[in-house]
Design a protein around this nucleic acid. Structure first.
Length: 483
DNA sequence: TGGGGTTAT
DNA sequence: ATAACCC
């Protein structure tokens, strides 16, 4: 049915289209302007083989806020605007504004080095993430107004699948408007646009939507950021960083390989982290080209079929992972790091502090956690970054008290957490911790399950049924009573 | 390295 | 419960 519609439109083609043949040099510098299977020269919607309207080619936008924490701080205190500003957590400058960057300050730089590079650097403490978190969700909510399919990545990045929005706008266009579609922002590598290529047109409309998103962020929230528009998440993310503060870039398919080639090392590929990079290097793979051409069989044997196939596809710029709507958070946690904690009393005090902040957040959220977890990091000279954790279900009578708004929950919760603590740390022996973290997860909405429904029975009998409806029968928590 | 998050095993 | 990934 979709193709019949497109076909009938072909016959009413605007004269403008007839005047500019598809192979006109002026229109397109790239090859393959027309596909042979579209002899009428008017490309239609890009549909999958079922033809039911679900697109085989997506339009994804990646939105990346500029030095997010620093922006939030400058909104909180406008006097900071125009000055070199760094946001400090412990002895690190975790991010800084562009004034500071011009003067040599970099992300995750030691405070000493930063002050040395830039003595005028103004520092604000950013260990309390509350305002950042709140602003972060305002951004996500604003983007959700464009399309509900928004996936968060950290506090300052979002992916939005705008395929449907683009299709709608495309269908709204009169045929004489289609040849007048323009790009908003940069085109990666300045590739020439071919308006006879439906993929180009869709991405250009995507760039216009991205511009509207950035405009809305600026007008409604006072925030600036970058955006990248491409046919998948990987490419959208990579291309969003090409022009850096407060600009946007669209990637046309013909420049995909160039974008990939612009990466200097496999470690720059999102999805290939520290561990995988080390294992790839051990195999002699360092560039993206190395990964592209490496034997799939051997890679699968070395890394496992799942990782191997995924990252090798990434090396070609292929990423079929969907934009998964994040929705409300799946967990709430607070952590504190320090040089040394070596007594139970000290630990208890810190845990109680973390708990107090978390209870406020839980209260605000409105849902109830059914699981609590305690995480520690032990001091160790060598062993890089290892955390241990213990978790248990929150007893029903404690869950009930969570919403009352008073502090009756604190003593029983501290009690549970200290049991978890002693299960991990032998307090009769000397110990040295450098981090404590408390996490509430397995969040359930308080929405009353209706009598007689499946949910009614599940809700009261299963503590491991997660919010999303996935079940975790295989994961058995230790109960607080077990200690 | 901070203070968070997610999914897969 | 841990390990990997992301910011």
């Amino acid at each position: 049915a979709e193709f019949e519609e497109e076909g009938s439109r072909d016959k009413e083609m605007d004269p403008v289209w007839s005047m500019e043949p598809p192979d006109a040099e002026a229109v397109d510098g790239s090859q393959g302007a027309m596909k042979p299977e579209e002899p009428d020269g008017f490309p239609g919607s890009v549909l999958d083989e079922a033809g039911h309207g679900s697109p085989s080619s997506r339009v994804i936008v990646h939105v990346d806020l500029d030095c997010f924490y620093a922006q939030v701080e400058m909104i909180s205190n406008p006097e900071l605007k125009g000055k070199p500003l760094g946001v400090q957590q412990k002895y690190l400058v975790v991010t800084c504004n562009y004034e500071a960057r011009k003067l040599g300050v970099q992300k995750l730089m030691n405070v000493r080095d930063a002050k040395e590079k830039c003595p005028q650097l103004v520092l604000v403490n950013g260990e309390d993430l509350t305002r950042y978190r709140e602003m972060s969700y305002k951004v996500t909510e604003l983007l959700e107004e464009f399309s509900p399919v928004v996936e968060r990545l950290g506090f300052d990045e979002n992916f939005v699948d705008i395929t449907e929005m683009v299709e709608k706008r495309l269908q709204q266009l009169q045929s004489d408007e289609r040849c007048a579609v323009t790009v908003s922002g940069h085109v990666y590598k300045d590739q020439s646009i071919n308006l006879y290529d439906i993929l180009h047109v869709r991405l250009l409309i995507g760039s216009q939507i991205a511009a509207e998103m950035r405009e809305a962020m600026c007008n409604q929230l006072g925030l600036t950021g970058c955006a990248g528009v491409a046919s998948n998440k990987l490419l959208a993310k990579l291309v969003s960083g090409t022009f850096k503060p407060n600009q946007q870039t669209v990637l046309l398919p013909e420049s995909c390989q160039d974008l990939i080639d612009s990466l200097n090392h496999v470690k720059e590929m999102p999805g290939i982290g520290y561990k995988t990079t080390k294992r790839l290097e051990a195999l002699g793979i360092s560039s993206v080209h190395d990964l592209q051409t490496f034997s799939s069989k051997i890679l699968e044997k070395e890394l496992g079929i799942s990782v191997a196939q995924r990252i090798q596809k990434l090396s070609f710029g292929e990423d079929d992972s969907p934009v998964t709507p994040s929705g409300p958070p799946q967990s709430f946690s607070e952590e504190d790091s320090f040089k040394k904690c070596s007594s139970e009393v000290e630990a208890k005090k810190k845990i109680a502090e973390l708990l107090a902040s978390l209870l406020n957040r839980i209260y605000q959220d409105g849902r109830k956690p059914h699981t609590v977890r305690l995480i520690i990091r032990r001091y160790s000279s060598e062993k890089h970054y290892s955390r241990e954790s213990r978790q248990c279900p929150i007893p029903p009578h404690v869950i009930q008290k969570l919403r009352t708004g008073n502090y009756d929950v604190i003593p029983p919760m501290v009690d549970i957490l200290m049991k978890l603590f002693r299960n991990m740390v032998n307090v009769k022996m000397p110990f040295h911790l450098t981090l404590l973290s408390v996490c509430f997860c397995n969040l359930k909405s308080l929405q009353t399950a209706k009598k007689g429904t499946i949910d009614y029975y599940l809700t009261s009998t299963l503590s491991t049924t997660s919010h999303s409806g996935k079940h975790s029968f295989t994961t058995k928590d230790t109960h607080a009573e077990d200690f």
